[in-house]
Design a protein around this nucleic acid. Structure first.
Lengths: 243, 243
DNA sequence: CGCCAGGTTGATTTCGCTCAAGCAATGTGG
DNA sequence: CCACATTGCTTGAGCGAAATCAACCTGGCG
Protein backbone atom coordinates (compact mmCIF):
# COMPACT_ATOMS: atom_id res chain seq x y z
CA UNK A 1 0.00 0.00 0.00
CA UNK A 2 1.69 3.17 -1.21
CA UNK A 3 1.60 6.20 1.03
CA UNK A 4 0.18 9.43 -0.28
CA UNK A 5 1.70 12.81 0.40
CA UNK A 6 0.75 15.09 3.24
CA UNK A 7 -0.86 18.51 3.23
CA UNK A 8 0.79 21.16 1.19
CA UNK A 9 -0.35 24.72 1.41
CA UNK A 10 1.02 25.75 -1.94
CA UNK A 11 -2.28 25.57 -3.84
CA UNK A 12 -4.60 28.53 -3.81
CA UNK A 13 -8.17 28.63 -5.04
CA UNK A 14 -7.45 32.01 -6.57
CA UNK A 15 -4.96 30.60 -9.02
CA UNK A 16 -6.79 27.32 -9.53
CA UNK A 17 -7.15 26.63 -13.23
CA UNK A 18 -10.21 24.52 -12.70
CA UNK A 19 -12.25 26.91 -10.63
CA UNK A 20 -14.50 28.38 -13.26
CA UNK A 21 -15.44 24.93 -14.43
CA UNK A 22 -16.55 23.90 -10.93
CA UNK A 23 -19.63 24.75 -8.87
CA UNK A 24 -17.46 27.16 -6.89
CA UNK A 25 -17.42 29.66 -9.73
CA UNK A 26 -20.56 31.00 -8.06
CA UNK A 27 -18.60 32.23 -5.04
CA UNK A 28 -17.94 35.91 -4.49
CA UNK A 29 -14.35 37.02 -3.88
CA UNK A 30 -15.10 37.26 -0.18
CA UNK A 31 -16.59 33.81 -0.05
CA UNK A 32 -13.73 32.44 -2.09
CA UNK A 33 -11.29 33.81 0.45
CA UNK A 34 -13.15 32.03 3.17
CA UNK A 35 -13.31 28.88 1.10
CA UNK A 36 -9.59 29.05 0.41
CA UNK A 37 -8.73 29.38 4.07
CA UNK A 38 -11.04 26.54 5.08
CA UNK A 39 -9.85 24.00 2.54
CA UNK A 40 -7.31 21.26 3.11
CA UNK A 41 -5.16 20.07 0.21
CA UNK A 42 -3.94 16.51 0.09
CA UNK A 43 -2.21 14.16 -2.35
CA UNK A 44 -3.27 10.57 -2.81
CA UNK A 45 -1.32 7.71 -4.31
CA UNK A 46 -3.09 5.24 -6.61
CA UNK A 47 -5.13 2.81 -4.56
CA UNK A 48 -5.29 5.10 -1.57
CA UNK A 49 -8.77 5.50 -0.06
CA UNK A 50 -10.30 8.97 0.15
CA UNK A 51 -13.40 7.98 2.05
CA UNK A 52 -15.15 4.75 2.77
CA UNK A 53 -18.44 3.24 1.78
CA UNK A 54 -20.87 3.61 4.69
CA UNK A 55 -19.08 6.60 6.19
CA UNK A 56 -21.18 9.65 7.00
CA UNK A 57 -20.30 12.65 4.88
CA UNK A 58 -17.79 14.94 6.56
CA UNK A 59 -17.54 17.34 3.67
CA UNK A 60 -16.83 17.51 -0.03
CA UNK A 61 -13.73 16.88 -2.10
CA UNK A 62 -12.80 18.97 -5.09
CA UNK A 63 -10.51 17.19 -7.53
CA UNK A 64 -7.55 19.34 -8.52
CA UNK A 65 -5.82 16.74 -10.64
CA UNK A 66 -5.67 12.99 -11.09
CA UNK A 67 -8.44 10.42 -11.25
CA UNK A 68 -10.66 8.91 -8.59
CA UNK A 69 -12.92 5.88 -8.61
CA UNK A 70 -16.20 5.43 -6.76
CA UNK A 71 -16.21 1.82 -5.72
CA UNK A 72 -18.89 -0.23 -4.12
CA UNK A 73 -18.03 -3.53 -2.48
CA UNK A 74 -20.72 -6.19 -2.32
CA UNK A 75 -21.48 -8.53 0.56
CA UNK A 76 -19.65 -11.25 -1.36
CA UNK A 77 -16.57 -9.08 -1.78
CA UNK A 78 -17.15 -8.30 -5.43
CA UNK A 79 -16.32 -4.77 -6.47
CA UNK A 80 -18.19 -2.45 -8.83
CA UNK A 81 -17.03 0.95 -9.99
CA UNK A 82 -20.09 3.19 -9.89
CA UNK A 83 -18.29 6.05 -11.53
CA UNK A 84 -15.14 8.08 -12.05
CA UNK A 85 -14.19 11.47 -10.70
CA UNK A 86 -12.23 13.79 -13.00
CA UNK A 87 -10.52 17.09 -12.23
CA UNK A 88 -13.09 19.88 -11.59
CA UNK A 89 -15.57 17.35 -10.19
CA UNK A 90 -16.72 17.70 -6.62
CA UNK A 91 -17.12 14.42 -4.75
CA UNK A 92 -19.24 13.51 -1.78
CA UNK A 93 -21.80 16.25 -2.20
CA UNK A 94 -24.60 13.76 -2.71
CA UNK A 95 -24.30 12.12 0.69
CA UNK A 96 -23.91 15.51 2.33
CA UNK A 97 -27.00 17.01 0.73
CA UNK A 98 -29.17 13.94 1.12
CA UNK A 99 -28.00 13.51 4.70
CA UNK A 100 -27.05 9.92 3.97
CA UNK A 101 -24.00 7.75 4.21
CA UNK A 102 -21.65 7.35 1.28
CA UNK A 103 -23.10 4.64 -0.95
CA UNK A 104 -19.69 3.95 -2.39
CA UNK A 105 -16.12 4.47 -1.29
CA UNK A 106 -13.80 6.83 -3.15
CA UNK A 107 -10.18 6.01 -3.93
CA UNK A 108 -7.45 7.47 -6.08
CA UNK A 109 -6.89 5.57 -9.34
CA UNK A 110 -4.02 7.78 -10.42
CA UNK A 111 -1.84 10.13 -8.36
CA UNK A 112 -4.42 12.65 -7.29
CA UNK A 113 -4.54 16.01 -5.57
CA UNK A 114 -7.76 17.18 -4.03
CA UNK A 115 -9.12 19.83 -1.73
CA UNK A 116 -11.31 18.89 1.20
CA UNK A 117 -13.94 21.33 2.42
CA UNK A 118 -15.60 20.55 5.70
CA UNK A 119 -19.38 20.02 5.78
CA UNK A 120 -20.12 23.02 7.97
CA UNK A 121 -18.35 25.39 5.61
CA UNK A 122 -20.21 23.99 2.63
CA UNK A 123 -23.56 24.30 4.32
CA UNK A 124 -22.76 27.81 5.41
CA UNK A 125 -21.82 28.90 1.91
CA UNK A 126 -24.90 27.18 0.55
CA UNK A 127 -27.11 29.03 3.02
CA UNK A 128 -25.74 32.44 2.10
CA UNK A 129 -25.27 32.05 -1.63
CA UNK A 130 -28.30 30.78 -3.55
CA UNK A 131 -26.30 30.75 -6.79
CA UNK A 132 -24.08 28.03 -5.34
CA UNK A 133 -27.17 25.93 -4.66
CA UNK A 134 -28.27 26.41 -8.24
CA UNK A 135 -24.87 25.20 -9.44
CA UNK A 136 -25.18 22.04 -7.38
CA UNK A 137 -28.77 21.61 -8.43
CA UNK A 138 -27.82 21.67 -12.08
CA UNK A 139 -24.98 19.29 -11.42
CA UNK A 140 -27.24 16.89 -9.51
CA UNK A 141 -29.81 17.04 -12.30
CA UNK A 142 -27.17 16.20 -14.89
CA UNK A 143 -25.75 13.36 -12.86
CA UNK A 144 -29.22 12.01 -12.19
CA UNK A 145 -29.77 11.80 -15.92
CA UNK A 146 -26.45 10.05 -16.37
CA UNK A 147 -27.28 7.55 -13.64
CA UNK A 148 -30.66 6.72 -15.19
CA UNK A 149 -29.02 6.29 -18.56
CA UNK A 150 -26.41 4.00 -17.04
CA UNK A 151 -29.13 1.88 -15.48
CA UNK A 152 -31.00 1.73 -18.74
CA UNK A 153 -27.90 0.62 -20.58
CA UNK A 154 -27.11 -2.03 -18.01
CA UNK A 155 -30.45 -3.74 -18.61
CA UNK A 156 -30.59 -3.33 -22.39
CA UNK A 157 -26.98 -3.57 -23.60
CA UNK A 158 -24.56 -6.48 -23.60
CA UNK A 159 -20.97 -6.41 -22.36
CA UNK A 160 -19.49 -5.48 -25.70
CA UNK A 161 -21.80 -2.51 -26.17
CA UNK A 162 -21.25 -1.31 -22.61
CA UNK A 163 -17.50 -1.52 -23.15
CA UNK A 164 -17.77 0.56 -26.31
CA UNK A 165 -19.71 3.21 -24.43
CA UNK A 166 -16.97 3.32 -21.81
CA UNK A 167 -14.24 3.60 -24.42
CA UNK A 168 -16.04 6.50 -26.05
CA UNK A 169 -16.31 8.32 -22.72
CA UNK A 170 -12.64 7.74 -21.91
CA UNK A 171 -11.68 8.90 -25.37
CA UNK A 172 -12.87 12.39 -24.54
CA UNK A 173 -10.23 12.70 -21.81
CA UNK A 174 -7.49 10.25 -22.66
CA UNK A 175 -7.75 9.88 -26.40
CA UNK A 176 -5.55 11.39 -29.06
CA UNK A 177 -6.65 11.52 -32.65
CA UNK A 178 -4.39 10.27 -35.45
CA UNK A 179 -3.80 11.44 -38.99
CA UNK A 180 -5.69 8.52 -40.55
CA UNK A 181 -8.95 9.09 -38.72
CA UNK A 182 -8.10 6.50 -36.07
CA UNK A 183 -7.81 7.08 -32.35
CA UNK A 184 -5.31 5.96 -29.74
CA UNK A 185 -5.99 6.09 -26.06
CA UNK A 186 -4.05 5.34 -22.94
CA UNK A 187 -6.50 3.80 -20.49
CA UNK A 188 -6.34 5.11 -16.94
CA UNK A 189 -7.72 1.82 -15.64
CA UNK A 190 -6.52 -1.73 -15.13
CA UNK A 191 -8.49 -4.60 -16.68
CA UNK A 192 -10.12 -5.47 -13.38
CA UNK A 193 -11.39 -1.95 -13.00
CA UNK A 194 -12.67 -1.75 -16.54
CA UNK A 195 -14.62 -4.93 -15.81
CA UNK A 196 -15.89 -3.39 -12.58
CA UNK A 197 -16.99 -0.28 -14.47
CA UNK A 198 -19.21 -2.13 -16.92
CA UNK A 199 -20.49 -4.62 -14.38
CA UNK A 200 -18.84 -7.77 -15.60
CA UNK A 201 -16.01 -10.19 -14.73
CA UNK A 202 -12.38 -9.91 -15.85
CA UNK A 203 -12.63 -13.21 -17.74
CA UNK A 204 -15.59 -12.01 -19.76
CA UNK A 205 -13.83 -8.74 -20.46
CA UNK A 206 -10.72 -10.52 -21.73
CA UNK A 207 -12.83 -12.60 -24.10
CA UNK A 208 -14.66 -9.52 -25.31
CA UNK A 209 -11.39 -7.72 -25.99
CA UNK A 210 -10.10 -10.70 -27.91
CA UNK A 211 -13.22 -10.91 -30.03
CA UNK A 212 -13.01 -7.20 -30.80
CA UNK A 213 -9.41 -7.63 -31.92
CA UNK A 214 -10.43 -10.52 -34.15
CA UNK A 215 -13.14 -8.32 -35.61
CA UNK A 216 -10.52 -5.66 -36.23
CA UNK A 217 -12.39 -2.87 -34.46
CA UNK A 218 -9.70 -2.24 -31.82
CA UNK A 219 -6.29 -3.41 -30.66
CA UNK A 220 -5.43 -3.71 -26.96
CA UNK A 221 -1.80 -3.75 -25.83
CA UNK A 222 -1.65 -3.34 -22.09
CA UNK A 223 -3.38 -0.08 -21.38
CA UNK A 224 -2.95 1.24 -24.90
CA UNK A 225 -5.93 0.99 -27.21
CA UNK A 226 -5.81 1.57 -30.95
CA UNK A 227 -9.05 2.18 -32.76
CA UNK A 228 -8.44 2.24 -36.50
CA UNK A 229 -11.98 3.34 -37.37
CA UNK A 230 -14.05 5.08 -34.72
CA UNK A 231 -17.06 5.00 -37.01
CA UNK A 232 -17.13 1.23 -36.82
CA UNK A 233 -17.39 1.45 -33.03
CA UNK A 234 -20.17 3.99 -33.21
CA UNK A 235 -21.98 1.76 -35.66
CA UNK A 236 -22.20 -1.00 -33.08
CA UNK A 237 -24.11 1.15 -30.65
CA UNK A 238 -26.11 3.29 -33.03
CA UNK A 239 -29.73 3.71 -32.13
CA UNK A 240 -28.82 4.65 -28.57
CA UNK A 241 -29.61 8.09 -27.31
CA UNK A 242 -26.19 9.69 -27.17
CA UNK A 243 -26.18 12.18 -24.27
CA UNK B 1 -57.54 4.51 -25.93
CA UNK B 2 -59.50 5.95 -23.02
CA UNK B 3 -59.89 9.70 -22.85
CA UNK B 4 -58.78 11.53 -19.75
CA UNK B 5 -60.80 14.29 -18.19
CA UNK B 6 -60.35 17.97 -18.91
CA UNK B 7 -59.24 20.75 -16.66
CA UNK B 8 -61.19 21.24 -13.51
CA UNK B 9 -60.61 24.25 -11.36
CA UNK B 10 -61.89 22.65 -8.19
CA UNK B 11 -58.49 21.83 -6.69
CA UNK B 12 -56.65 24.46 -4.71
CA UNK B 13 -53.07 24.29 -3.52
CA UNK B 14 -54.21 25.81 -0.23
CA UNK B 15 -56.31 22.82 0.65
CA UNK B 16 -53.98 20.27 -0.95
CA UNK B 17 -53.33 17.45 1.52
CA UNK B 18 -50.01 16.66 -0.08
CA UNK B 19 -48.49 20.09 -0.07
CA UNK B 20 -46.33 19.89 3.02
CA UNK B 21 -44.83 16.65 1.75
CA UNK B 22 -43.77 18.23 -1.53
CA UNK B 23 -40.99 20.63 -2.43
CA UNK B 24 -43.58 23.41 -2.55
CA UNK B 25 -43.82 23.52 1.21
CA UNK B 26 -41.01 26.06 0.92
CA UNK B 27 -43.30 28.60 -0.74
CA UNK B 28 -44.51 31.66 1.14
CA UNK B 29 -48.29 32.35 1.20
CA UNK B 30 -47.77 34.96 -1.48
CA UNK B 31 -45.81 32.65 -3.70
CA UNK B 32 -48.29 29.90 -3.13
CA UNK B 33 -51.06 32.17 -4.34
CA UNK B 34 -49.12 32.81 -7.50
CA UNK B 35 -48.36 29.13 -7.87
CA UNK B 36 -52.02 28.27 -7.39
CA UNK B 37 -53.14 30.69 -10.06
CA UNK B 38 -50.50 29.52 -12.52
CA UNK B 39 -51.13 25.79 -12.22
CA UNK B 40 -53.29 23.68 -14.52
CA UNK B 41 -55.07 20.64 -13.14
CA UNK B 42 -55.75 17.66 -15.36
CA UNK B 43 -56.98 14.07 -15.05
CA UNK B 44 -55.38 11.20 -16.88
CA UNK B 45 -56.80 7.78 -17.61
CA UNK B 46 -54.57 4.70 -17.31
CA UNK B 47 -52.30 4.46 -20.32
CA UNK B 48 -52.65 8.12 -21.21
CA UNK B 49 -49.36 9.89 -21.94
CA UNK B 50 -48.37 12.92 -19.84
CA UNK B 51 -45.27 13.83 -21.77
CA UNK B 52 -43.11 12.08 -24.28
CA UNK B 53 -39.58 10.81 -24.32
CA UNK B 54 -37.38 13.28 -26.18
CA UNK B 55 -39.67 16.25 -25.55
CA UNK B 56 -38.09 19.38 -24.15
CA UNK B 57 -39.29 20.20 -20.65
CA UNK B 58 -42.21 22.63 -20.65
CA UNK B 59 -42.65 22.60 -16.91
CA UNK B 60 -43.16 20.30 -13.99
CA UNK B 61 -46.03 18.05 -12.93
CA UNK B 62 -47.08 17.61 -9.34
CA UNK B 63 -48.93 14.36 -8.68
CA UNK B 64 -52.11 14.91 -6.72
CA UNK B 65 -53.34 11.33 -6.80
CA UNK B 66 -52.90 8.18 -8.82
CA UNK B 67 -49.76 6.55 -10.17
CA UNK B 68 -47.52 7.39 -13.08
CA UNK B 69 -44.82 5.41 -14.86
CA UNK B 70 -41.63 6.75 -16.42
CA UNK B 71 -41.15 4.64 -19.50
CA UNK B 72 -38.26 4.49 -21.90
CA UNK B 73 -38.72 2.89 -25.29
CA UNK B 74 -35.69 1.36 -26.96
CA UNK B 75 -34.74 1.54 -30.62
CA UNK B 76 -36.06 -2.01 -30.96
CA UNK B 77 -39.39 -1.09 -29.41
CA UNK B 78 -38.73 -2.72 -26.05
CA UNK B 79 -40.03 -0.81 -23.06
CA UNK B 80 -38.36 -0.27 -19.70
CA UNK B 81 -39.94 1.42 -16.71
CA UNK B 82 -37.27 3.64 -15.21
CA UNK B 83 -39.39 4.53 -12.23
CA UNK B 84 -42.77 5.24 -10.70
CA UNK B 85 -44.29 8.54 -9.65
CA UNK B 86 -46.43 8.57 -6.52
CA UNK B 87 -48.65 11.32 -5.12
CA UNK B 88 -46.56 14.24 -3.73
CA UNK B 89 -43.82 13.55 -6.29
CA UNK B 90 -42.92 16.26 -8.77
CA UNK B 91 -42.15 15.01 -12.26
CA UNK B 92 -40.10 16.51 -15.02
CA UNK B 93 -37.92 18.70 -12.85
CA UNK B 94 -34.76 16.91 -13.88
CA UNK B 95 -35.00 17.75 -17.55
CA UNK B 96 -35.98 21.32 -16.70
CA UNK B 97 -33.05 21.90 -14.37
CA UNK B 98 -30.48 20.13 -16.50
CA UNK B 99 -31.79 21.88 -19.60
CA UNK B 100 -32.15 18.54 -21.35
CA UNK B 101 -34.86 16.59 -23.06
CA UNK B 102 -36.95 14.10 -21.16
CA UNK B 103 -35.00 10.84 -21.05
CA UNK B 104 -38.21 8.90 -20.56
CA UNK B 105 -41.87 9.47 -21.27
CA UNK B 106 -44.41 9.73 -18.46
CA UNK B 107 -47.80 8.05 -18.55
CA UNK B 108 -50.59 7.40 -16.10
CA UNK B 109 -50.68 3.83 -14.81
CA UNK B 110 -53.78 4.39 -12.70
CA UNK B 111 -56.40 7.15 -12.92
CA UNK B 112 -54.28 10.14 -12.04
CA UNK B 113 -54.76 13.79 -11.24
CA UNK B 114 -51.87 16.16 -11.55
CA UNK B 115 -51.03 19.82 -11.59
CA UNK B 116 -48.89 21.29 -14.34
CA UNK B 117 -46.70 24.29 -13.62
CA UNK B 118 -45.14 26.02 -16.57
CA UNK B 119 -41.34 26.23 -16.78
CA UNK B 120 -41.17 30.02 -16.54
CA UNK B 121 -43.12 30.07 -13.31
CA UNK B 122 -40.93 27.39 -11.79
CA UNK B 123 -37.75 29.20 -12.74
CA UNK B 124 -39.10 32.44 -11.40
CA UNK B 125 -40.01 30.92 -8.05
CA UNK B 126 -36.64 29.21 -7.93
CA UNK B 127 -34.86 32.51 -8.55
CA UNK B 128 -36.67 34.33 -5.77
CA UNK B 129 -36.88 31.62 -3.15
CA UNK B 130 -33.61 29.87 -2.31
CA UNK B 131 -35.40 27.52 0.06
CA UNK B 132 -37.25 26.01 -2.88
CA UNK B 133 -33.94 25.30 -4.56
CA UNK B 134 -32.72 23.59 -1.43
CA UNK B 135 -35.82 21.41 -1.45
CA UNK B 136 -35.18 20.34 -5.01
CA UNK B 137 -31.51 19.89 -4.28
CA UNK B 138 -32.26 17.49 -1.46
CA UNK B 139 -34.74 15.67 -3.65
CA UNK B 140 -32.25 15.39 -6.50
CA UNK B 141 -29.58 14.13 -4.12
CA UNK B 142 -31.92 11.47 -2.77
CA UNK B 143 -33.03 10.37 -6.23
CA UNK B 144 -29.44 10.29 -7.39
CA UNK B 145 -28.67 7.85 -4.61
CA UNK B 146 -31.66 5.73 -5.56
CA UNK B 147 -30.63 5.69 -9.20
CA UNK B 148 -27.08 4.59 -8.38
CA UNK B 149 -28.44 1.89 -6.12
CA UNK B 150 -30.77 0.71 -8.87
CA UNK B 151 -27.85 0.52 -11.28
CA UNK B 152 -25.80 -1.40 -8.75
CA UNK B 153 -28.59 -3.88 -8.20
CA UNK B 154 -29.10 -4.37 -11.91
CA UNK B 155 -25.51 -5.53 -12.36
CA UNK B 156 -25.22 -7.59 -9.17
CA UNK B 157 -28.67 -9.10 -8.57
CA UNK B 158 -30.61 -11.68 -10.53
CA UNK B 159 -34.24 -11.38 -11.62
CA UNK B 160 -35.64 -13.02 -8.52
CA UNK B 161 -33.75 -10.72 -6.18
CA UNK B 162 -34.70 -7.65 -8.18
CA UNK B 163 -38.34 -8.72 -8.07
CA UNK B 164 -38.17 -9.10 -4.31
CA UNK B 165 -36.76 -5.60 -3.97
CA UNK B 166 -39.63 -4.28 -6.06
CA UNK B 167 -42.21 -6.14 -3.99
CA UNK B 168 -40.75 -4.69 -0.83
CA UNK B 169 -40.95 -1.17 -2.24
CA UNK B 170 -44.54 -1.66 -3.38
CA UNK B 171 -45.44 -3.11 -0.01
CA UNK B 172 -44.83 0.27 1.59
CA UNK B 173 -47.67 1.81 -0.43
CA UNK B 174 -49.95 -1.00 -1.46
CA UNK B 175 -49.38 -3.60 1.24
CA UNK B 176 -51.64 -4.47 4.14
CA UNK B 177 -50.33 -6.49 7.06
CA UNK B 178 -52.17 -9.55 8.30
CA UNK B 179 -52.71 -11.01 11.75
CA UNK B 180 -50.28 -13.90 11.23
CA UNK B 181 -47.29 -11.78 10.29
CA UNK B 182 -47.93 -12.23 6.58
CA UNK B 183 -48.55 -9.47 4.08
CA UNK B 184 -51.01 -9.05 1.24
CA UNK B 185 -50.59 -6.52 -1.49
CA UNK B 186 -52.59 -5.41 -4.49
CA UNK B 187 -50.11 -4.65 -7.24
CA UNK B 188 -50.71 -1.44 -9.17
CA UNK B 189 -48.96 -2.93 -12.19
CA UNK B 190 -49.66 -5.50 -14.88
CA UNK B 191 -47.19 -8.34 -15.42
CA UNK B 192 -45.65 -6.67 -18.44
CA UNK B 193 -44.93 -3.56 -16.46
CA UNK B 194 -43.49 -5.45 -13.53
CA UNK B 195 -41.15 -7.10 -16.01
CA UNK B 196 -40.32 -3.69 -17.50
CA UNK B 197 -39.55 -2.36 -14.00
CA UNK B 198 -36.95 -4.98 -13.19
CA UNK B 199 -35.48 -5.05 -16.66
CA UNK B 200 -36.59 -8.48 -17.81
CA UNK B 201 -39.12 -10.17 -20.13
CA UNK B 202 -42.67 -11.23 -19.23
CA UNK B 203 -41.80 -14.88 -19.87
CA UNK B 204 -38.91 -14.80 -17.44
CA UNK B 205 -41.07 -13.04 -14.88
CA UNK B 206 -43.81 -15.69 -15.16
CA UNK B 207 -41.25 -18.43 -14.58
CA UNK B 208 -39.81 -16.58 -11.61
CA UNK B 209 -43.25 -16.14 -10.06
CA UNK B 210 -43.97 -19.84 -10.52
CA UNK B 211 -40.75 -20.85 -8.87
CA UNK B 212 -41.44 -18.54 -5.95
CA UNK B 213 -44.86 -20.14 -5.50
CA UNK B 214 -43.29 -23.58 -5.58
CA UNK B 215 -40.84 -22.42 -2.94
CA UNK B 216 -43.75 -21.21 -0.84
CA UNK B 217 -42.43 -17.67 -0.40
CA UNK B 218 -45.34 -15.94 -2.16
CA UNK B 219 -48.63 -16.61 -3.94
CA UNK B 220 -49.68 -14.64 -7.01
CA UNK B 221 -53.35 -14.50 -8.06
CA UNK B 222 -53.79 -11.86 -10.72
CA UNK B 223 -52.59 -8.68 -9.13
CA UNK B 224 -52.97 -9.95 -5.58
CA UNK B 225 -49.84 -11.16 -3.83
CA UNK B 226 -49.78 -13.10 -0.59
CA UNK B 227 -46.58 -13.28 1.33
CA UNK B 228 -46.94 -15.71 4.22
CA UNK B 229 -43.57 -14.87 5.76
CA UNK B 230 -41.96 -11.55 4.90
CA UNK B 231 -38.83 -12.60 6.77
CA UNK B 232 -38.25 -15.34 4.23
CA UNK B 233 -38.25 -12.74 1.45
CA UNK B 234 -35.86 -10.50 3.33
CA UNK B 235 -33.62 -13.48 3.90
CA UNK B 236 -33.16 -13.89 0.17
CA UNK B 237 -31.72 -10.43 -0.25
CA UNK B 238 -29.93 -9.99 3.05
CA UNK B 239 -26.49 -8.54 2.81
CA UNK B 240 -27.76 -5.72 0.62
CA UNK B 241 -27.53 -2.20 1.85
CA UNK B 242 -31.15 -1.43 2.64
CA UNK B 243 -31.77 2.26 2.02
C1' DC C 1 15.42 -16.77 -8.22
C1' DG C 2 10.84 -17.51 -6.60
C1' DC C 3 6.80 -15.19 -5.49
C1' DC C 4 2.53 -12.95 -6.43
C1' DA C 5 -0.96 -10.12 -8.50
C1' DG C 6 -2.96 -9.39 -12.75
C1' DG C 7 -4.29 -11.23 -16.87
C1' DT C 8 -5.62 -14.78 -20.22
C1' DT C 9 -7.56 -19.19 -21.70
C1' DG C 10 -10.39 -23.35 -21.49
C1' DA C 11 -14.36 -26.23 -19.90
C1' DT C 12 -18.68 -26.21 -17.90
C1' DT C 13 -22.95 -24.46 -16.03
C1' DT C 14 -26.44 -21.20 -15.17
C1' DC C 15 -29.46 -17.73 -16.23
C1' DG C 16 -32.28 -15.32 -18.97
C1' DC C 17 -33.76 -14.37 -23.87
C1' DT C 18 -36.05 -15.81 -28.16
C1' DC C 19 -39.36 -18.04 -30.66
C1' DA C 20 -43.51 -20.47 -30.72
C1' DA C 21 -47.64 -22.23 -29.15
C1' DG C 22 -51.54 -22.56 -26.02
C1' DC C 23 -54.92 -20.38 -22.94
C1' DA C 24 -57.90 -17.57 -20.30
C1' DA C 25 -60.35 -13.03 -20.01
C1' DT C 26 -62.31 -9.29 -22.38
C1' DG C 27 -64.44 -7.08 -26.09
C1' DT C 28 -66.88 -6.57 -30.68
C1' DG C 29 -69.81 -7.20 -34.40
C1' DG C 30 -73.23 -9.82 -36.59
C1' DC D 1 -76.24 -14.55 -27.60
C1' DC D 2 -72.65 -16.63 -29.95
C1' DA D 3 -68.44 -16.58 -33.21
C1' DC D 4 -64.40 -14.36 -33.19
C1' DA D 5 -60.55 -11.23 -32.73
C1' DT D 6 -57.62 -9.19 -29.37
C1' DT D 7 -54.80 -8.77 -25.51
C1' DG D 8 -52.28 -10.37 -21.56
C1' DC D 9 -50.38 -14.28 -19.37
C1' DT D 10 -48.28 -18.77 -19.14
C1' DT D 11 -45.63 -22.78 -20.77
C1' DG D 12 -42.27 -25.29 -23.47
C1' DA D 13 -37.96 -26.01 -26.22
C1' DG D 14 -33.72 -24.33 -27.68
C1' DC D 15 -30.12 -21.10 -27.71
C1' DG D 16 -26.72 -17.68 -26.45
C1' DA D 17 -24.37 -14.64 -23.26
C1' DA D 18 -22.01 -14.39 -19.36
C1' DA D 19 -20.66 -16.39 -14.75
C1' DT D 20 -18.01 -19.86 -12.59
C1' DC D 21 -14.26 -22.87 -11.70
C1' DA D 22 -9.73 -24.01 -12.68
C1' DA D 23 -5.44 -23.89 -14.82
C1' DC D 24 -1.80 -21.47 -16.66
C1' DC D 25 0.81 -17.52 -18.24
C1' DT D 26 3.27 -13.07 -17.60
C1' DG D 27 5.78 -9.33 -15.76
C1' DG D 28 7.38 -6.88 -11.93
C1' DC D 29 9.80 -6.99 -7.54
C1' DG D 30 11.53 -8.38 -3.15
Amino acid sequence: MARGGENHGSISCFTCQNRDRTEWCALSPDELKRFDRAKTVRDFAPGEPIYHQGDPSHGVYCIESGLVGLRKIGADGSSTLLGLGFPTNTLGYRALLAGEEHLAGAEALKPTTLCFIEAGTVRDLLDHNPALGVQFLERAARELGEAEEKYYQSVTLNVRQRLIHLLLILRERYGSGQRNGGVTLELPLARQDIAAMIGTRPETLARTLKKMEEDGVAKFKGRRVDIPDAGKLLGEIEGDAWL
